[in-house]
């Protein structure tokens, strides 16, 4: 059984009866997931390790296609089309749906080139335009002040928290409509975590956000909607304050009160 709240806002994504099976597995890792994702808001996915949160997140930008044999069934509707369709252009899909990973993934190049990478991929060559977009992205990611004097330095010289904000800058530079965060703070210290959380909250004016987190407090702090997943199923989706205060499903209640995890 599952309880899915209705989303009154416009929807960024609609996941319908979605099954996902890894190449190495016989059983699907995600079963009949149906989940609306509201536009310009933050949807958090919580649940114990191995419940399928990251698997679901990585389906939204078809990351699983990098490894042969993985199988999708059902639909993920985005802008009126099913992105699981074989004809879907994964390159333009991933330009529109960006992703931030658990560990910072600064490319082995300068800070400037990192942020310009996605823009250059789209064929932007004009130096002034590139410079403006890089500056804007770094400002939006709240890291401009720290790096403006060393844009030409190697990005790997930055601290973990700075690298993660750089990755966010790189992702928002191409102006995606949706951003997927896969446990973006689990490798960071508390202060950097706070910085990223504030940033995520600010970003929702421009993008729709789905964030996977191990940390229930984090979900409660930043998100508008929270989905609780267990053993490959979405057990409950609700407005965050309602889900944490008055969960509708017994499993959700047991999880958020710490009876298992």
């Amino acid at each position: 059984m599952s309880t899915i709240c209705s989303v009154t806002e416009e929807k960024a994504l609609e996941i319908n009866k979605f099954d996902f099976t890894y190449a190495s597995a016989d059983e699907p890792s995600l079963k009949q997931v149906t989940m609306p994702i509201a536009k310009n808001s933050i949807t958090a996915l919580i649940g114990p390790s191995g419940c399928g949160k990251s698997t679901l997140l990585r389906s939204i930008n078809r990351m699983h296609d990098l490894y042969p044999g993985n199988k999708y069934e059902g639909e993920i509707m985005y802008n009126g089309r099913n992105i699981l369709d074989e004809k879907e252009d994964l390159i333009s899909l991933r330009v529109n749906i960006g992703m931030i990973f658990q560990k910072p993934t600064a490319f082995p190049m300068s800070i400037y080139d990192n942020v310009a990478y996605g823009l250059r991929l789209q064929g932007m060559r004009n130096k002034t335009e590139l410079g403006d977009r890089v500056e804007k992205a770094l400002k939006d990611a709240a890291i401009w002040k720290e790096v403006r004097d060393r844009l030409k330095h190697d990005a790997n010289g930055l601290s973990g928290g700075q690298q993660q904000r750089l990755c966010i800058a790189r992702a928002i530079a191409v102006e995606p409509e949706i951003l997927l965060f896969d446990e973006p703070t689990s490798a960071l210290d508390p202060i950097s975590t706070q910085g990223i959380e504030e940033l995520v909250t600010e970003l929702k004016d421009k993008v729709s956000i789905v964030i996977v987190t191990h940390n229930m407090q984090q979900a409660a702090r930043v998100s508008d909607y929270t989905g609780f997943m267990y053993l490959g199923e979405l057990i409950e989706l609700g407005k965050t304050e309602e889900l944490f205060v008055t969960p509708k499903e017994r499993l959700t209640e047991e999880y958020i009160t710490g009876k298992f995890g």
Binding site: N61, M63, L66, I91, S92, L93, R94, V95, G98, M99, F101, Q102, K103, T105, F107, P108, M109, Y117, G118, L121, Q122, C167, R170, A171, V174
Partner: peptide, 24 residues
């Protein structure tokens, strides 16, 4: 994850290899 990060930005495979993996 470095490769995945490049793919997630919409990079085609040959660019991921030439620009990210080789550089690393």
């Amino acid at each position: 994850t470095l490769r995945e990060a490049a793919f997630a930005l919409g990079a085609p495979k040959y660019k991921v290899v030439l620009q990210i993996v080789y550089r690393g």
